[in-house]
Design a binder for these strands. Structure first.
Lengths: 223, 223
DNA sequence: GGCGACATCGCATCATGATGTGAGGACGGC
DNA sequence: GCCGTCCTCACATCATGATGCGATGTCGCC
């Protein structure tokens, strides 16, 4: 009944080391669930491609930090001017706080190390595409350290509301800006079922439209 | 009873939900490589134990955020006054930015969600004890967002998009969950004018519906 | 004295969302 | 076996949103 619409993750690769790039290309080509959308050895050509591309042409970008000419960090900034919600995974051998911070501020969603195993790397790509932000343990620690230094604010706790697994998935879809239909396709369920979830969602969140639901979801980290 | 070498990770548990605590105790007791050092239902008794404890008596602390009386966050702060290098894993159902930030500032090394699987949880405990900082995908995302906002972007700035005064007002209305009509009334302008603003807003934000617009607005603090 | 950016309004059209009502199957607890 | 919750789907209807095309008036500006 349902057409075999492959939910393959289309990856754009920007990496100057030819050998490393080739190995990543091979990995992506041979990993079920992944597809190489494009591959570049420098930021300039990659940006040219992005300038002409549609948002639907790729799901996630692997960006090397150390590139000849324009750096991967600068390129990420440029890329996100055009596609503000693009998922970018920085790939590097360095773990320096300054570099990490710059990458994050430029809009990187994940910060992966080149020594990461292939299996782990694919998992992290998935995670990034799903809105997560995978980081290696060391990077995570650095990030927390930076955050601690920069901020200093106390907090409070609210009341809880438990959303069903499905409800959460639907909410996540809305937060991503999907329409009912897209959410339905995404979860492989009926259009009407999505409506049903949204109804109960609205009751639980005490709202009457997507906007308010999304606001609560994002502000309170419900998803 | 007393073995010569002890490679087991000794865990102190602070969790008020008796059932959940019991299940964690069971998990730790039955997982090779882990050992329950102590277990408490509230922060006060836990702190009393820590006050009398030696640093080598435990390796990592699992701290629930929502505790009766003193919160897990406050307790973490106290604990780290005595043991500044103690590894604390916050455990919670919430992913609110404020809570996360407070926990991190209090000295938490990891931020785990209660819905995490047992297997994953043990891996994260190991990671924390090893100096890592495991975070769930959603938490990681929030952390990066906080970091971006706090550290006034150095090198490459994330493409500044300047919204008009009116556009911002309209966006704020949407974030509040108002309908076009309500926004119009609120700003004392015509329904059609609101539409016009939203059109340009969508172009600037590169989205095609309220949900996505609101997500960007809230996440990036545009309003 | 036209040019560009902003704020304002109107109309039209098609797509999507909001809500009501109803209902069947799966599963776990009592 | 019955009850409650969750997941699933359908049909109906009205309200609202998404987008395209245009238009007027005010500023500040070179």
């Amino acid at each position: 009944m349902t057409e075999p619409a492959e939910p393959r993750l289309r990856v754009v690769l920007v990496e100057d080391d030819a050998r490393y790039r080739a190995s990543l290309e091979t990995l992506l080509d041979n990993s079920p669930g992944f597809a190489l959308a494009a591959s570049f050895g420098d930021a300039e050509r990659a940006l040219a491609w992005f300038a002409a591309a549609e948002r639907f042409a790729f799901d996630v970008v692997i960006m090397d930090v150390e590139l000849p000419g324009m750096s991967g960090i600068a390129a990420t900034g440029k890329l996100r001017e055009r596609f503000p919600d693009a998922a970018v995974a920085m790939l590097t051998v360095f773990e320096e706080p300054k570099t990490i911070l710059a990458a994050i501020c430029a809009g990187a969603s994940g910060y992966m190390l080149k020594r990461t195993s292939a299996r782990e790397l694919l998992a992290q790509l998935r995670s990034i595409a799903d809105g997560g932000s995978p980081m290696s343990a060391g990077v995570a620690r650095t990030v927390l350290e930076l955050l601690r230094r920069g901020h200093a604010t106390p907090a409070s706790a609210p009341g809880r509301l438990d959303l069903t697994e499905r409800e959460q998935q639907v909410l996540r879809g809305l937060v991503r800006g999907l329409s009912y239909k897209q959410v339905a396709d995404d979860l492989a369920i009926s259009h009407d079922t999505v409506r049903t979830y949204i109804r109960t969602l609205y009751k639980k969140l005490q709202v009457h439209n997507v906007a308010a639901a999304v606001t609560r979801a994002v502000r309170e980290g419900l998803v």
